[in-house]
């Protein structure tokens, strides 16, 4: 394949034609900047917290957030990176080393918070106990606590926006998972800017990589020489998501544009879904124990904490 712009060897074939290294980087960065502008993901008054892990998505989104701020003359002191160490042996420590190195090179301040320090146990220790009491899968436990800590520490640092590295594949997977499980309420919270209604308790989350496929993000990270070592979470194959991911990749290989089609269909329906769910959304309130956001008296994170507190 040759690049449609310059006839040099292509690095990727896209729906609108193949691109070489240089034209792909331009295309990718332009797409992300346009997404940030279209959805007004960063405003001049914002303090920005970038949720990071050290993987390709978060390094890419952190790098491009910095680039965006430089382009629009927003002080880089407004950007902070936040990482959560779940306490998964042989996994997170490796990506955190890459992240620390990256933040140092990019001169971006980084805060790392951990399940162990905040909740008293690592995920490896807590998951079997919670699973015994409430039959929760590790990804459920991890998801609840990660969201809890991100929101809590982003708020502590004075952030008005949380930027995440969710890409087009992540979003297409969740849309399909919610359809399979008839979970309209959760579907309404998706989109480039999260949430059905604004709340004082939740900091708004935005996704600049929303229209970038996972393959494009990996290619960008490779071409930019970001240090991304492949490490696999030992729990990742236990999830429903893993099956949906394989199914979507299988369709994409046979029918190029499938994932983009899922996203486009979803975005066309999102205003109606949000309108419909507005009346059904449980009002967000303050957790009676920790003071963080909750949709019942005690938040999910505190309920899980309770399950492990006797061991």
């Amino acid at each position: 394949m040759k690049c449609v712009h310059c006839s040099k060897p292509a690095v990727i074939g896209l729906q609108h034609g193949a691109l070489c290294k240089i034209h792909f980087i331009d295309y990718f960065e332009d797409k992300v900047i346009k997404t940030m502008n279209k959805y007004q993901m960063i405003e001049r008054k914002d303090n920005i917290c970038v949720a990071t892990s050290g993987g390709k998505d978060s390094l890419t989104v952190l790098y491009l957030t910095k680039k965006y701020c430089e382009k629009y003359d927003i002080p880089l002191t407004k950007i902070r990176a936040l990482a959560v160490d779940e306490g998964i042996a042989q996994y997170r420590e490796k990506t955190l080393i890459d992240l620390q190195k990256f933040c140092k090179e990019q001169a971006i301040s980084l805060e790392v918070v951990s399940f162990e320090q905040e909740l008293g146990k690592t995920l490896d220790e807590a998951y079997p106990l919670i699973n015994k009491s409430a039959q929760k899968k590790p990804c459920n436990v991890c998801g609840v606590w990660r969201r809890y800590l991100l929101n809590k520490y982003a708020a502590k640092s004075g952030a008005s926006k949380v930027i995440t590295g969710h890409n087009l594949d992540d979003e297409a997977q969740v849309i399909i998972m919610n359809i399979f499980k008839a979970n309209t309420k959760l579907t309404g919270r998706l989109g480039p800017i999260s949430g059905i209604e604004c709340s004082d308790y939740f900091i708004q989350r935005v996704k600049p990589l929303y229209f970038c496929t996972e393959k494009e993000v990996r290619l960008y990270a490779f071409l930019k020489k970001f240090q991304v070592e492949f490490t696999e979470c030992p729990y990742s194959k236990e999830g429903f998501r893993h099956q949906v991911q394989a199914m979507l990749n299988d369709f994409e290989e046979r029918y190029r544009g499938t994932k983009q089609g899922v996203i486009n269909s979803f975005l066309a329906l999102l205003p109606q879904i949000r309108e419909q769910e507005k009346g059904n959304v449980e009002s967000v309130r303050e957790c009676a124990r920790c003071g963080e956001a909750a949709n019942k008296e005690v938040c999910n994170a505190c309920q899980m904490k309770e399950m492990i507190s006797h061991d």
């Binding site: 060897p9 690095v11 990727i12 071409l223 299988d250 290989e253």
Partner: peptide
Amino acid sequence: NLEAFLVVRNREVIT
């Protein structure tokens, strides 16, 4: 799956 891998030869990604 083609969607799940990048293929690199001599440090260059190939299609």
